[in-house]
């Protein structure tokens, strides 16, 4: 390998076979280079057609923005294999940061097409990429890198998502993914998971496609509601999906709320019940400072307990 000074335009930036990131944010680096210059030379590979950039994408793009036209680069000779170079890229990145899921997918795919076997990738790289050594995840990430949409890759570059949820999400049509991705991006990790699972299960349950569900009037009303932020749309969608996926449980929950309303249940007294309804036990909590206050609550609750609909709170079977 040699250190050379070359013109930026000699580097073919269209060839991205060594680039793992679907989007490159180099603003901070640009400021730093503007201040103190380029500290570490990028790595390029010499080819007959010119130089291919191997690592240092952000550095090169930042220099280009700053009109720095001559760069120091380390040149790998033409005979250096692609596998060798991608290994360097992965090593270089892994030592300084965690890779996003999109980058992990890309790394797995490149390692594989540059000649490393699935088994070797799983045994040597999955632990380093913090991935469970399961074949299905190799297939999933390989497919995302080779066939996934740019939007999906950018999404996976920005957010965390469980591999289980990703595996379901990647089975959705690209149309459905396009509708969901902005909203999933704005949601929390657990909400993201919830929405994906609920959608998948609802589609299975009713024999519908995900797109059909997303096209229903109620869902469109949520997705097209301009008064809601993306995050709130996610919340509303999760709520709607839950009611459809678990109609009985939702009905049961609704009935408790309704009963409490009809009983004019005091707001200061919290009633807790097992959200899965497995346990029959109910629990109350209220705070008081004076004995009279305590007696007041107890009297009020006694009064409530006399009303026939109070028994609805103790309902355990469907027939009652």
């Amino acid at each position: 390998m040699k250190l050379l000074f070359i013109e930026l335009k000699q580097i073919n930036l269209e060839e991205k076979k060594f680039c793992l990131s679907p989007s490159l944010d180099y603003k901070a680096l640009q400021t730093s280079i503007a201040r103190i210059g380029l500290l570490i030379p990028p790595l390029v590979k010499a080819t007959k057609e010119g130089f291919i950039l191997v690592s240092g994408w952000k550095r090169v793009l930042a220099c280009s923005e700053l009109n720095i036209m001559i760069l120091p680069v380390i040149v790998a000779p033409e005979e250096t294999g692609d596998l060798d170079l991608i290994l360097r890229v992965i090593e270089e990145n892994l030592t300084i940061r965690r890779l996003s899921l999109a980058e992990k997918a890309e790394a797995i795919y490149r390692l594989n097409i540059f000649g490393l076997s699935k088994e070797k990738i799983m045994s040597d790289f999955f632990p380093r990429l913090a991935l469970p050594q399961k074949k299905e995840y190799f297939v999933l990430l390989h497919q995302i890198a080779s066939k996934g949409s740019e939007e999906l890759k950018k999404f996976l570059h920005k957010v965390e998502i469980s591999l289980e949820a990703l595996s379901l999400l990647s089975s959705f049509s690209s149309d459905s993914q396009a509708k969901l991705l902005p909203l999933l991006e704005a949601s929390t990790y657990s909400r993201r998971r919830e929405i994906i699972f609920l959608l998948y299960e609802l589609a299975q349950k009713n024999g519908l496609s995900i797109n059909k569900i997303l096209e229903t009037e109620e869902v469109r009303a949520i997705l097209e509601n301009n008064r809601l932020t993306l995050r709130l749309k996610g919340e509303a969608l999760a709520g709607w999906l839950k009611r459809k996926r678990y109609p009985l449980i939702s009905y049961w929950e609704e009935e408790i709320k309704q009963t409490l309303k009809e009983l004019a249940w005091p707001e200061e007294v919290d009633l807790f019940y097992d959200p899965t309804f497995e346990k029959a036990e109910l629990r109350l909590s209220f705070s008081f400072q004076q004995p009279e206050q305590f007696v007041q609550y107890v009297d009020r609750l006694k009064e409530i307990a006399q009303k026939p609909i109070f028994l609805k709170l103790f309902r355990r079977t469907l027939n009652e």
Partner: peptide, 13 residues
């Protein structure tokens, strides 16, 4: 629902 034993099972009712 996830029952007290951590297994998925039908809603109790």
């Amino acid at each position: 629902v996830i029952g007290q034993d951590g297994k998925f099972r039908y809603f109790k009712p």
